[in-house]
Simulated scan of single mutants.
Amino acid sequence: MEKFVEERKAFTEYLQIEKNASPYTIHFYQRDIESFFEFLNKEGIIQLGEVDYAVIRVFLTEQYDQKLSRRTVSRKLSSLRTFYRFLEREEIVTSNPFISVSLPKMDKPIPDFLYQEELEKLFHVSDTSTPLGERNQALLEILYATGMRVSECKKLTLQDIDFSLGTVLIHGKGRKERYVPFGRFAQEALEAYINNGRNSLLQKSNQTNDTVFLNARGAPLTPRGISTILEQMVKNAALTIHVTPHMLRHTFATHLLNEGADLRSVQELLGHEHLSSTQIYTHVTKDHLRNIYMNSHPRA
């Protein structure tokens, strides 16, 4: 639709330049705003300043009539609130009507995580006498050791790893960077892979690159490739669970909290902008503490 082209363009530039938003984030903002523009066109609203609380309620009713989840509606509202905050700042509108609209309460899903026994089986399944086995072991160790996202793991370069300090520089969402430490097991697996298996894999490609994790042809692994590797490891370990790279991130956070790490530290290690994102893991800590209490307190 041709209306509001300039406003949309200015907002996109704001997200790119001032907010350092990732292309993925910008895509969702644009999609949410576009659906709102389509609604305004259908309602005959030709000025963004005409939108008020009543218009927003009609918009929300339509969203729920489409059987959209509360999570999706909440995301749309959040996108539009940010959009109108920008419009207000640029004096395109005089007020932000989305400020008075509360986000729908969402059921917070309990993140899936692996128990220590399940992890141990995965750690012993790779044949580390082969280049691919060394790679798989290093991949598993670093994902669990750092809790990084699969998109961050894909971008990892040799220069990002500091073996002398035992830290890795992770390039996160929105161009944010963070240093995360890793332990002895991850270090040994990474060193073995980088010094041996990775060189063997790289020889299969006629190109040079500094990406840490390579596929069987010597090219950088894709997120789908990482998921496939984990699926095969689970199959080889004869586990009856479905494991994703993100589940290792959940496991990383859950195990740290269960062992006494504070929430703020885990937030920083995960690269979460808001503490509320990290708090989804506290349910496991509460269960863990309850079990300790019930098993230890004399009058439990």
Rank of each mutant, 00 (worst) to 15 (best):
residue 133 G to T: 02
residue 270 L to G: 01
residue 8 R to N: 12
residue 183 G to I: 05
residue 171 H to E: 08
residue 218 G to S: 06
residue 121 K to G: 05
residue 284 V to H: 13
residue 277 S to N: 07
residue 232 Q to L: 12
residue 10 A to C: 06
residue 78 S to Q: 06
residue 22 S to T: 12
residue 236 N to P: 06
residue 284 V to M: 13
residue 25 T to C: 06
residue 1 M to Q: 09
residue 34 E to D: 14
residue 216 A to M: 12
residue 48 L to T: 03
residue 254 T to G: 01
residue 78 S to A: 15
residue 214 L to D: 00
residue 273 E to L: 11
residue 265 S to R: 09
residue 130 T to R: 13
residue 148 M to N: 01
residue 210 D to T: 14
residue 182 F to H: 02
residue 48 L to M: 10
residue 21 A to C: 15
residue 128 T to K: 14
residue 44 G to C: 07
residue 199 N to T: 09
residue 246 H to A: 05
residue 129 S to Q: 14
residue 47 Q to N: 14
residue 75 R to K: 10
residue 95 S to F: 10
residue 5 V to N: 10
residue 23 P to H: 04
residue 164 S to A: 11
residue 71 R to I: 11
residue 26 I to A: 08
residue 175 R to P: 11
residue 266 V to D: 00
residue 174 G to M: 07
residue 88 E to S: 06
residue 286 K to V: 13
residue 128 T to F: 08
residue 70 R to H: 11
residue 14 Y to M: 01
residue 96 N to P: 09
residue 19 K to I: 04
residue 43 E to H: 09
residue 216 A to T: 14
residue 118 E to I: 04
residue 53 Y to W: 08
residue 151 S to K: 09
residue 239 L to M: 04
residue 36 F to L: 08
residue 197 G to V: 05
residue 91 E to I: 04
residue 167 T to S: 10
residue 143 L to M: 10
residue 141 E to P: 08
residue 13 E to I: 11
residue 97 P to R: 00
residue 91 E to Y: 07
residue 263 L to S: 01
residue 123 F to I: 01
residue 231 E to W: 03
residue 282 T to W: 08
residue 112 D to P: 03
residue 20 N to M: 12
residue 241 I to S: 07
residue 253 A to E: 01
residue 174 G to Q: 04
residue 85 R to Q: 14
residue 152 E to R: 03
residue 195 N to W: 06
residue 82 T to H: 06
residue 123 F to R: 03
residue 1 M to V: 07
residue 105 K to T: 05
residue 269 L to V: 00
residue 277 S to G: 05
residue 284 V to G: 03
residue 146 T to C: 08
residue 216 A to Q: 14
residue 261 A to M: 04
residue 252 F to G: 00
residue 37 F to Y: 15
residue 180 V to A: 03
residue 1 M to R: 11
residue 226 I to C: 02
residue 13 E to D: 14
residue 233 M to W: 12
residue 15 L to C: 02
residue 43 E to M: 15
residue 81 R to T: 10
residue 257 L to W: 02
residue 175 R to H: 13
residue 87 L to Y: 04
residue 241 I to M: 08
residue 230 L to N: 00
residue 226 I to W: 02
residue 164 S to H: 10
residue 270 L to S: 00
residue 108 K to L: 09
residue 274 H to Y: 13
residue 120 E to L: 08
residue 99 I to S: 06
residue 22 S to G: 07
residue 80 L to I: 05
residue 181 P to D: 01
residue 278 T to W: 08
residue 253 A to V: 01
residue 66 Q to I: 09
residue 104 P to Q: 04
residue 287 D to C: 03
residue 29 Y to K: 06
residue 31 R to K: 13
residue 32 D to T: 08
residue 103 L to N: 15
residue 19 K to Y: 09
residue 44 G to S: 10
residue 161 I to H: 01
residue 119 L to T: 02
residue 132 L to E: 03
residue 207 Q to C: 11
residue 267 Q to K: 07
residue 125 V to R: 00
residue 88 E to H: 10
residue 136 N to E: 07
residue 228 T to E: 07
residue 106 M to H: 10
residue 284 V to F: 12
residue 272 H to W: 03
residue 235 K to I: 08
residue 174 G to P: 15
residue 131 P to Q: 00
residue 47 Q to P: 04
residue 218 G to P: 06
residue 166 G to D: 02
residue 66 Q to T: 09
residue 91 E to T: 11
residue 286 K to R: 12
residue 177 E to K: 10
residue 226 I to L: 04
residue 103 L to Y: 11
residue 107 D to Q: 13
residue 122 L to S: 01
